[in-house]
Structure formats: structure tokens, C-alpha cells
Design a protein around this nucleic acid. Structure first.
Lengths: 344, 344
DNA sequence: CTGAAAGCGCTTACAG
DNA sequence: CTGAAAGCGCTTACAG
């Protein structure tokens, strides 16, 4: 690896001038610029990132945390049940790359007790900021992040501070819209399967479902409610329970597409047709929603805007020194083949 | 952030002693060790990674590249059609975390012409080594990596060097086994839909399919072959083409589960039942394979062993200075509900 | 516009 | 076993 000293020698200037020329934020004569850039190109010079950040330069690294089941690691993100967040991660990466940032996936021990050391680990790596996905509210690690003043953007979580803000979908409105869709089709006995309680978006969606039921004067029926864990398998079991307890249900609202896929299987095994016998809805509109049998009626989240908005907000924190206002992103009802008027 | 100087002051020793104590690879008196560790704990001291690597210490960072469609970025990995590799990434992360390594997802411009700068970017970040997933053979970026001597492990790709090795499944054997399964059920007109040509595992699987057909003396029939791109959508279209051109087919071998899901939809839309009218097989055994309707007969790849093996091989490169031998991992035929004897 | 100097926080021979 | 010193490669005031 060539160093700035070698580039300086070849260009006949000082190391300081090399640094100024390549960083772009200082005035350099046109002739000097030309010589330095030529020398850098010849030697294939790339500044050492460790040295750069050690001497006060920007680190150009964003840490991404994903946060579920009391663990804070990418391994969570790669779990099938969190498939949706992959699309968010993709747009985070695209946004970060466009701004010249690398992504760091910290491999710190996920012990909740060591929230302080987690944050210190991020500092030790000189990350510019963090994007934290799906943090349960009140988790002490959020506090540690806020106290440390590390610029942070929370996705699908709500936390604010001088250097912290959040981005999330209109979960309540989306769930309300899809439930209303079922009600308008004529459904009254609508079962719902939710994700984990600690997840804020799960709670928001449940409130949306309830609001739609209340608006139609359909009384609350706890027997039609099951809580699951966002997984296909968990929803499959929950649906089996519901079908055993309440064979009169005519529709199932699942709070994610992956859960809806589990519901479809449970209905299939009970010999029930979708949508003729039972309607099913999902949430997220992952790509597989269109390939489910039947294709899923669902609520689309704008993953581009979620990830891109998170990066944009973080860059604003970094540049401006303080966090922009939180963002709520609109959702969209997508009607496909898994919903129809009730027959029973 | 506390520095080693502050820890040294509090412990009443020199910075050198702090470094020696905490790095663990030097003799220190028990009393000194106790004082230094107490001081470090009190101050919440975490060594600055940039300074560490600048002064010759290990960087404790592994770069992960994913490589498809001529792009080299995580964004590829998060594409639905590469869903399978998520499980590999998960085991890479677990292995790296266990060894105390963070994962870096470099956000370099994915221009194939700049393979040199890609590698220099990794060096500039002082990554200890790289794990590259699904690189097409002969890509110049592989060459750049080998020439730079950066310790590298290739997953689902074949490249070796003094500091480079690879890990892959027994793709040929797996594809041969699932095709043989269909033949033993009585199928003769077996269509196959493969992934991209440049992908080595795609070619290996195709060879396995052909070997099984040849062993049963079933002549090669180009009309029953379509190449796709690993995506659900692409396989859906390929299956539609096959059904239009060759309505006499009785089975479809898809080279991935995600493609098989697209095939299931195409058959469904043609009013064909699976497995009564047509049998379908996948490859990978992703979690969704069991939740497809019907559940998929497929070939299981050991993602734990792939990711874990890649990390293990890389650590051996790092410690031993040269790469261990390549690894082929056994696959396993998983028979579910999407295959049956042909009726037509 | 450009150079000489100091410093970022750590580690590692070199002495003792 | 421990300390003083040099150095990793860069950037940024400070002079000119």
C-alpha cells in the first residue's frame, strides 16, 4: 500500500498538500492538484482509514444494529421471520454507499447488561453514527446510545434525542385499512394474529385493527386474538389454535406476510379454501406475497423510503449537529386474491 | 472515551503496561494486572480500534462480499432470490462474533473495472481477511484479491491461492440425487430450470441432473431445459414457457427453492395439481420450503457448515499464514409432498 | 497556496 | 516484569 509520503515524493509536494488535495476541502492550485492526482493514480493510493480517523477525519462508517429477541445483531436480521427488514437493509446500504459510507455489523456480545460496553465498542471503532432497527421501547441500550450522544436513527422504533430520531411506517393506519377492507367485504368474525408485544409496530398494528372493528361497532372478542412471534411457524400454530377454538371465523388478519404464509398452510391442512372459506391478509408486501397461493392481500410498506430516510436523517445529524424531525411513512393497501366476501 | 493514558495514570503504571496487560500476550505481575484491570473497568476503557490497527495490531474485522449480477455488495445478498445465502451470512456472523471479529460490508462502487481499487479499499480499512460469496469464476476481482495476498475464503466459488481457499456444497451429487428420486418414481419427461450460467453452483447442479438422466438412459432433451436467474419471478416465466412448449412434462427440477415457488404458481395458474399432475423439486431447503403449498421436496444444504467453515478456514489462514484445503459439504435429499409418481 | 510541526491513541522492540 | 521512546499514516492549525 502506497502512503501519502510516497505520493508526495512523486508529485514533488508535501504530505500536507497531498492530504489537502485529496480531501477536497482546501484550496490547491490547479497545477498542484493535477500532479498530486496523477501521482495518486499511478501509485493506486488510497488513504488509510485508521490513520484518517485517528487524526480527526471522518470515519465514513455507519454501524447497523438489529434488535429482536433481546439480541442485537445481524443474525437476528437474517432470521426468516425478519425477512421484511432485509429490504430495509438493502436501501440502507444503497443510501450509505451513495454517500460513501461503509456499513459495520458489530459483533459485540449481545448481553443486555453490557449496553455501555456495546456503545463503547461502537465508539472504539469510531463509527460516525448508528442505524438501529426494531428496538423495543425502553431498552437500556437505547438509553446508552442516547446518553453517549452517538448520532442514531431508529427504524420501527420511537426514540428521540438531540442527535437521535426515528423513521417508521403508519402501522396503525395500514392495519386499520386492511381490516376495514375485510369489514367492507362483509366479515364480522375476524381473527388477528400479532407479533411480539415488545415490538412497537406490533402494538400499533393491533390498535389499527381494533380501531377498524370499533368503527364498525364490532365488539372486542378476545377469543379471536392470538399473539405470536412474527414467524411463519408461530403463526401456523396460532392459526391452528384459532381454528380449533373458533371454527366460525371467516377471516384472519396476520400482522406480517411471513405469518400469513403460515396461516395459509394451517387453513390448507384444515381443508379450508382461501378466500372462498376464509380470507387472509398480511402486512409488508414482501415480494413473496404475490407468489403465495393464493396471492396475498396485504399492506405495503415503503422499504426504500424507510432505509433511505434513515440514512438521510443520519447524514443530517452528522452534518447539522442535531437530528431532524421523526418521519411517518404512508402505507398502501394492496388487494390480491386472498380476500373475498364471507360464504359461511 | 477514556484513553490508555488515563488508565495508566489511575493504575499508577505506564501506557505500555496497560497495553501489555489488556492485550494478554505479555507477562505482567499479578498485582499489576489487578490494578490495570480495575482501572480499565472503572473508566470503561475500550482500546481505540483505529489506533490499534495503525500501530500494527490486528484489525479484528472481516469484510464480507457478495457477488452476483456483476455487482459486489450486500444489496445483492438482500435480494429475495438470494434468500438462501442469508442463512450462510448468519452463520458467518455467528462464527466471526465467536472469534471476536466484526463484519464490514464495504460500500465501494461495484465497477468491475476497478477491482484493484476495491481491494485497496479493503486494505485501507485494514481488514484482516475477506469472505466472498458466489463469485463467478474468472472474475478479475478474484484475481485482484489473490494477487494482493489478502486472506480470502470463497463460498460457492472455486479459487485457491497461498492465502485463499473455498467452501461449497456437493451440488452435483445433490442435484443428481433429487433427479434420481424423480426417475425412481417413474418420471421420464423431466424439465429443469437452472440459475445463471456464470454461477458455478448452477453449472454443477445441471451436471448432476444430466448425470442422473444419463444413468437412467433418458436421452438429453433440450426442449425441456430453461435457464433462468434464480428468481421466483424468472422461474415463474420459465415454467410458463415450458408448459406451453412441452405440455407432456411430468416433473420440473428447479435449482433453488425460490425458483420452485415460482414454478408452483405457474402450475397452479395452468390448473395443474402438484404432485398429482406434475412433480416439482427445489434446492437449498430454505425454511419456506416446508411452508410452500405443497411442501417442497428439495436438497438441503448445510448453511451452518458453509458459513462456519468459511470463518474457520479464514481464521486458519490468519493464524497459520496459509490456507487450508478446500471443503465440499454433503447435501441431503429431503422428500416432502411436491413429488409423486406421474399420472399422465 | 504551501510546508514544517505537532498530535491522534495505541503497540512494540529496546533497555533495564 | 516494567518504562521511555519511536513510530504507525494521516490531518490540521500555524506560519509564511
Amino acid at each position: 500500500m502506497a502512503t501519502s509520503a510516497e505520493v508526495a515524493r512523486l508529485a514533488g509536494v508535501s504530505r500536507a498538500t497531498v492530504s489537502r488535495t485529496l480531501s477536497g476541502n482546501a484550496r490547491v492550485s490547479a497545477e498542484t492538484r493535477r500532479r498530486v492526482e496523477a501521482a495518486a493514480a499511478t501509485l493506486g493510493y488510497v488513504p488509510d482509514v485508521a490513520a484518517q480517523s485517528l487524526s480527526g477525519g471522518p470515519s465514513r462508517t455507519i454501524a447497523v444494529g438489529f434488535f429482536a429477541d433481546d439480541t442485537w445483531a445481524l443474525s437476528q436480521l437474517t432470521k426468516p421471520k425478519h425477512y421484511f427488514y432485509l429490504n430495509v437493509l438493502r436501501s440502507i446500504e444503497a443510501g450509505a454507499a451513495a454517500a460513501g459510507y461503509d456499513l459495520l455489523l458489530p459483533a459485540r456480545p449481545p448481553d443486555p447488561e453490557t449496553s455501555g460496553s456495546y456503545v463503547r465498542g461502537l465508539r472504539a471503532r469510531r463509527v460516525a453514527g448508528t442505524i438501529m432497527v426494531a428496538c423495543p421501547p425502553g431498552d437500556r441500550r437505547i438509553q446508552a446510545l442516547l446518553e453517549a450522544g452517538l448520532p442514531s436513527v431508529f427504524v420501527d422504533a420511537v426514540a428521540t434525542g438531540p442527535c437521535a430520531t426515528w423513521v417508521a411506517s403508519e402501522n396503525r393506519e395500514g392495519a386499520q385499512a386492511v381490516t376495514r377492507h375485510l369489514i367492507e367485504l362483509g366479515h364480522r368474525r375476524i381473527a388477528r394474529i400479532t407479533g411480539t408485544e415488545t415490538d412497537p409496530s406490533g402494538g400499533e398494528r393491533l390498535r389499527g385493527i381494533r380501531a377498524a372493528l370499533a368503527a364498525a361497532a364490532i365488539p372486542e372478542d378476545p377469543g379471536l386474538y392470538r399473539r405470536s412471534d412474527w414467524s411463519t411457524e408461530g403463526a401456523y400454530h396460532a392459526a391452528n389454535e384459532l381454528l380449533a377454538a373458533r371454527p366460525d371465523l371467516t377471516a384472519v388478519v396476520a400482522e406480517s406476510d411471513m405469518m400469513a404464509i403460515g396461516v395459509l398452510r394451517a387453513l390448507h391442512e384444515h381443508g379450508l379454501r382461501v378466500p372462498e372459506d376464509v380470507s387472509v391478509t398480511g402486512f409488508d408486501d414482501i415480494d413473496l406475497a404475490a407468489y403465495a397461493l393464493p396471492s396475498l392481500t396485504t399492506v405495503r410498506q415503503d422499504t426504500e423510503a424507510m432505509g433511505g430516510g434513515a440514512v438521510k436523517a443520519l447524514l443530517e445529524c452528522l452534518d447539522g449537529g442535531h437530528a431532524p424531525a421523526p418521519v411517518r411513512l404512508p402505507t398502501e393497501l394492496v388487494v390480491r386474491r386472498s380476500t373475498a366476501p364471507p360464504a359461511r
